[in-house]
Amino acid sequence: MAESGKTATKNLALIEAINLALHSEMGRDEDVVVLGEDIGKNGGVFRATVGLLDAYGEGRVIDTPLAETLVAAMAIGLSTQGLRPVAEIQFSGFLYPCVDQVVNHATRYRNRTRGRMSCPLVIRAPNGGGIHAPEHHSESLETTFAHMPGLRVVCPSSPARAYGLLLAAIRDPDPVIFLEPTRCYRLFKQSVEDNGEALPLDTCFVEREGSDITLVSWGAMMHDTRRAADLLAEEGIAAEVIDVATLKPLDLETILTSVAKTGRCVIAQESARAGGWGSEIAAGLAEHGLLSLFAPVMRVSGYDTIMPLARMEKLFIPGVERILKEVRKVFEIAPKN
């Protein structure tokens, strides 16, 4: 563990980085409260809130009754009074009861009172499959929320980015849906500096530069996308890799700038295909970047099926091979010179 100034750099898994960000921000700002099911003594079903109860007490670490609508609604009420609630929903499938509260209320109080009220809240939930969880535990909900005006939808893809983006989400004056990649919670560790510095929202991150093709993804699929880029590099193809990070509002500029350079683009999402956020990005490229493209923008996605239970979930979740397959189609149409 290295010390740099007052802040410690730790090697952390993504779930530990989430926990660190919560600790850090609750220590910095006493208006930050966390709420949800089993988040107190139990530390959350994935352990994102471990240690918060001991550090900050049950006034600010609120174990709620088993009622997801209530969790979202309570966060709304807290946020209207100037607190900064961070609500946890245990699994993505249980976010659906929150949709009404988020869409009909959280996104609207500022707008309908012309700024008299506001809802600076965060709803965190694991997102997507890949951990052999029971039914209703593996859904991908980012597009459900990204379609809704007045929201921010953030999907971190690495421990360091999860730390910085969660700080940003908590400090943001508007409601943020923060969807964490379930299968990356403990997949790999990364050096995270507990410096209290937020990363920018509304910004895509170009995390690897390349000149031949742009690979766009977010959340858990970033892990597969990075591996695809590694494999392509071995073949002499330089992929530029973009982590969308904030899906809504979308920083299309960064993606357009990349595609203007590479002329090729594959978008990888875990969620179902039709009307997914990859479709929104592809439409943006068609409208504003068509003349830069050497080949159609290809999408890699889950199928338009119900998320299968554990035995079949790998059929649904696109992996490296399905990304490479679409990349090869692009290079068949527009070979590298």
Binding site: G77, L78, T80
Partner: peptide
Amino acid sequence: THVPHSIGVAYAF
């Protein structure tokens, strides 16, 4: 649907 907002407001108080 506004009724449970009261929980958060009162909790803040």
